[in-house]
Design a protein around this nucleic acid. Structure first.
Lengths: 357, 357
DNA sequence: CTGAAAGCGCTAACAC
DNA sequence: GTGTTAGCGCTTTCAG
């Protein structure tokens, strides 16, 4: 049945209403709203004025239905306020707003049944034009995740072995983070470096683990057993208690700053001095890292550049389906040396009878 | 012009396609997809099977256009990875997924021209059914922000003087956070408490400032000059350098943990012991707070409960436009006493000759 | 440079 | 319980 001849007074104005006021066709209004060429300046102004006067607001649902594109991109994040993921998400929001796309967010929680694939699915379901997966973690079953997607996908952080038609990745810093840390410690004179890793399911944790391992191997150093935490300061603390008992430990690389902080606390409580007895380095450079006692040596990832670069390439892939993808940019890693690292204690005989300096 | 008789093979299946396969009308498919009653079990199964077989996926844009509702809610956040805002956002994501709504995010950055109103506008523009404003800050011009919105709005964190048709707020912890801290310090025997506030534009900062001020007044204590930071550890450090120079300072309440951490570092560097010479308490209980040296005394906000409660009420307001709003729940504040607070140093002459107990 | 007509895929309202 | 009919407000295609 016809809705009604004279629409309810409070109904939102439509483009035809604007057209009527401006004295043009509805299609012309559409042209103006989309910034299409071939509209004379005079008409454009009239339309804009009419729209303004009526308080016209384009209906995105109608546009999406008619055009088949939603002009929105979806992001899959972990449901945590962890520094890395949270910073990345904010970066994506910032990047997206400049492009005119809207942002839809869905998160996977660790141990989530449907996982990333489910999240991607729900995004596809909502009809996004592109997808960003931030800090992926490994799914339950298959190691090789194949995304059944026809929209471009950007993977931020350590890229898992995704199989998807149009994937773009960013943040090829991969093992360079771990390498920078490990080499710093080795250069300081430590015989070897211990590693407090992140949860094995996180690709970011694996990258660091492998980078550390490779660096040690290249330098012909013994690889001590790995300890695994869960990114939290409390897991770092637990690890620290174990490590403190072993006085061959002189250098530890924690996979993130939170764990490094917990670790240092445990070391200190056990009477091991940092950095005199043991050097500790974290990763992230969280805002408080510089204000620890001692100030934490750490590595910083170029989150902003990473997101910006990745996003630019994602949008390119969305808008130029057939063009070649833009190559990824090479991003710098920044080692921030502060006071939690130092040369190893001097060893005369079996043990270290030595004070600072 | 007609698109084409036999749709392109790769086109997504529509509900009519499902209907054809299931041997029912298109409307029945719609009923099944929406879980409407009055569909026999047999038909429902046939439809579901057909949908599954075809890989049918409901078109949300079409649904939104036809129904006038998008089943999505928008969130306005600050573009920061600060603990409070980030945690709140994650909470909202978690809450939203259980309700079947989709989430759209837009962020305001501090000093943003359009500010919250602009963000709300862009959300309205995208057609959301409800809006969440997390941790609002004051806009450029007007103090009294009136949102021209017809959808319900949930304000998380300190509610500003919003004027909007259908606002719901959550997190009435308001001055209780500051009160808990200030009273804790006073009970320890400190004559007064200094305050390192957050940026004045943040309503959350004001709440804390006022709570601290009120508590001091109630106890008849002198109110020391306020120092203002920007939530960062480095601003806390700067404040700490100033405070360290004044040895009448025995207790400081920092408006968040990051600033408290910077503050403590500055105090320590200046040779003032924490907590023996000066007690410091933060606010948030960030994950590393317990692993500082000394472990930080702080207050924790019930973020999860706050979001859950608020969100439940928002959805209620969306789905029952005419019903009375659900009253806000009273939320607890949790003071976490660790080692950064202690009774004030013993003073022999002018001041309080007293030790603990 | 501008306009007319025909849908996009779904839900709403009403029969049967 | 189920089907029919009319749009939702845009973009698209093709004529002018």
């Amino acid at each position: 049945m016809a809705r009604l001849a004279g629409r309810s007074p409070r109904a939102a104005p439509r483009s035809v209403d604007v057209a009527r006021v401006a004295g043009v066709s509805q299609k012309t209004v559409s042209r103006v709203m989309n910034g299409e060429p071939y509209v004379s300046e005079g008409v454009r102004r009239r339309v804009l004025d009419a729209a303004e006067e009526l308080g016209y607001r384009l209906n995105h649902a109608a546009r999406a239905l008619a055009s088949g594109r939603t002009r929105s991109i979806g992001v899959v994040t972990l449901g945590t306020a962890l520094y890395g993921p949270a910073t990345l998400l904010m970066g994506v929001e910032r990047a997206v707003r400049d492009t005119g796309y809207a942002l839809r967010v869905v998160n996977t929680m660790e141990g989530d049944a449907s996982g990333i694939a489910g999240a991607v699915d729900s995004l596809l379901d909502q009809g996004v034009d592109g997808i960003v997966i931030s800090e992926p973690i490994e799914e339950e079953g298959d190691a090789d995740l194949s995304l059944r997607t026809d929209v471009p996908v950007l993977v931020l952080g350590a890229p898992p072995p995704f199989t998807a038609p149009r994937v773009v990745t960013a943040g090829i810093v991969a093992d360079r983070l771990a390498r920078a840390v490990t080499e710093h410690l080795l250069e300081l004179g430590h015989t070897t470096v211990h590693h407090l890793a992140g949860p094995a399911r996180w690709y970011a944790a694996r990258d660091r683990l492998e980078g550390w391992r490779a660096t040690l191997a290249e330098h012909g150093r013994r690889e001590p057993p790995v300890i695994t935490g869960d990114w939290s300061a409390s897991s770092g603390y637990a690890a620290g208690r174990r490590l403190a008992a072993d006085d061959t430990v002189t250098a530890v690389f924690a996979a993130n700053d939170d764990m490094a902080i917990g670790l240092i606390r445990a070391l200190l409580e056990a009477g091991r001095r940092v950095p005199e007895d043991v050097s500790v380095v974290g990763l992230d450079d969280i805002p408080v890292a510089a204000y620890m006692s001692p100030p934490l040596t750490t590595v910083r990832q170029p989150f902003d550049a990473m997101v910006q670069d990745g996003f630019k390439r994602l949008v390119h892939a969305i808008e130029n389906p057939d063009a070649d993808p833009i190559p990824a940019q090479d991003l710098p890693v920044e080692l921030v040396v502060r006071a939690s690292t130092a040369p190893p204690p001097h060893r005369t005989t079996p043990e270290h009878p030595r004070v600072s300096l």
